[in-house]
Amino acid sequence: MKIKPLQILAHIILILGVLLMVVPIWISFASSTHDTVTILTEGMKFNIGEYFSRNYNEVLNEKGGWSEEVTAAKMFINSFIMALGIATLKVTISAMSAYALVYYRFKLAVPIFWLIFITLLVPLEVRIFPTYKIVSDLGLTNSYTGLILPLVASATATFFFRQFYRTIPDELLESAKLDGANSWRFFIDFLVPLSKTMIAAMFIFMFVYGYSQYLWPLIMTTSEKYWTVVMGMKIIFTESYEGVALPRTAERFAYIILSMLPPVLVVVILQKWFIKGLIQTEK
């Protein structure tokens, strides 16, 4: 097969893209296996060092934070609970609201849909003070509920589900009706299985979204028990040296690598469905 110049160019661009994505991660990983002094004196590393097990062990088990109460492992669990809660509820709620918008033909369905859609323009960061006020009035600061609840409504997912449901032929609903399926059964027996690839794709998006929340957990948690991985990144593994806080760089790199794992795992596990959900529908 003859290789055309254009193909070579295309490959060069692709390879550059891959390097751009992979090299920083590799540097982080390689650096996480050295000790801090080496990194501080010699800069970031490309080769694997010999402190792998020590660094990672410390990261997972050492107590950190201001009051030395929280471990990274605990923060992982917190982040996981938050991301899982956000993703699950976002998918459930938006699938149901899309169901209502598409199948219950009430007069205000379209205006309501646009109202939901407009909330895309008002992300959490914009409404953070009123949100904090409400959550705090409800007494939900320092709780998983408080971490999750303000983030569970999703215009994006509602939009995707709505578009998907609209492609399902009316005859399917009518046929199901004649077969004795009520609204609830139609949702559970038809829409959910038909949109399972869609659900998987949305779940991944929303899991990563929930996992990478920074500002909200930072503001609403005062107890270290509810710290999450992403906010912890700034705070833990700092060493006080003559009154100046110095980062423990090597451990931080290990922490960063570990913090990337949960979303990566979710993507890897669900990616088959994820791709299906993006490119095809089972109809």
Binding site: E174, S175, A176, L178, D179
Partner: peptide, 26 residues
């Protein structure tokens, strides 16, 4: 009443057995 639709409206995610059985199950 039972209806046969122009595009059949078979349940795409169920096998033939379940397509037939669904109405009875309900």
């Amino acid at each position: 009443v039972a209806m046969v639709f122009q595009n059949y409206a078979l349940y795409p995610h169920m096998n033939v057995y379940n397509n037939l059985a669904y109405g009875l199950k309900n």
